[in-house]
């Protein structure tokens, strides 16, 4: 699967070689947006960089600017990236996306792969490695060299996108009906997913789930 993406990317990459990419950085901390922007400008000489601080802001920014690359955080004050990615994929199928987050790769990377997002950079990664991955992303080079794929798992790794989405709200103390309202889903769906989350993480209640989330650095 990733191989196909790589080919598609390279083809488009040739077309875009002489063009500066138009990049959006979507992150809820302005310090992180500005810092990353500085790195992109001074270290990699990119010029066209926009910023968005929330899911809504991102959708607006995408509407107003023709963008080629999106650097996307996972948690925003008005939702998670998992909620907007399907819409972005539908409205802007050509945009290339890299996830840039504090969240562990082994938890979220698989979920994002289902939306054809193969670049995942952890914010805690050191500067040189980060720059290399960003450079690969912006030049449509495959994210990792062959055989470099990391295979680390933790109790949250097997959660599907929808489950991760709901996990975020559960950890934030939302009740089932609140989650249903926020995500526009039925309460029975939420209950089912909730049960599955408990099963997969082998927990029995929210307290245990919170403790486990803390242990594996799931921020929320």
């Amino acid at each position: 699967m990733p191989r196909n993406i790589v080919f598609a990317g390279t083809k488009n990459g040739v077309r875009m070689k002489n063009m500066q990419p138009y990049i959006i950085i979507a992150d809820d901390h302005s310090m992180i947006r500005k810092g990353l922007k500085l790195l992109l400008m001074s270290q990699l000489q990119y010029r066209n960089i926009y910023e968005a601080s929330s899911c809504n802001g991102l959708m607006n920014e995408l509407k107003n600017n023709k963008c080629t690359h999106l650097i996307l955080d996972v948690i925003f004050s008005d939702g998670t990236a998992l909620e907007v990615v399907p819409a972005i994929r539908k409205l802007y199928p050509d945009i290339r996306i890299m996830v840039f987050s504090m969240q562990l790769k082994e938890v979220y990377a698989d979920a994002f792969k289902q939306f054809d997002i193969h670049y995942y950079l952890n914010k805690a990664q050191d500067e040189d490695v980060s720059l290399e991955i960003i450079n690969r992303f912006l030049n449509d080079i495959p994210p990792v060299r062959d055989g470099e794929e990391l295979h680390q798992r933790n109790p949250f790794s097997s959660l599907a996108p929808r489950e991760l989405e709901i996990l975020h709200y559960l950890l934030n103390g939302y009740q089932t009906n609140n989650i249903a309202n926020t995500l526009n889903l039925s309460t029975s769906t939420i209950s089912t997913v909730k049960k599955r989350i408990f099963e997969k993480t082998e927990t029995e209640n929210i307290t245990q789930l919170l403790e486990l989330a803390l242990l594996y650095n799931i921020s929320f």
């Binding site: 901390h29 310090m31 992180i32 500005k34 810092g35 990353l36 500085l38 790195l39 001074s42 270290q43 948690i75 504090m102 914010k123 805690a124 500067e127 650095n217 921020s219």
Partner: peptide, 17 residues
């Protein structure tokens, strides 16, 4: 971790740069 560590990290990255 979300509101202190990651902004601090980017203060460091940016100022260092």
């Amino acid at each position: 971790s979300h509101d202190i560590i990651s902004p601090l990290r980017f203060i460091y990255l940016a100022s260092n740069n």
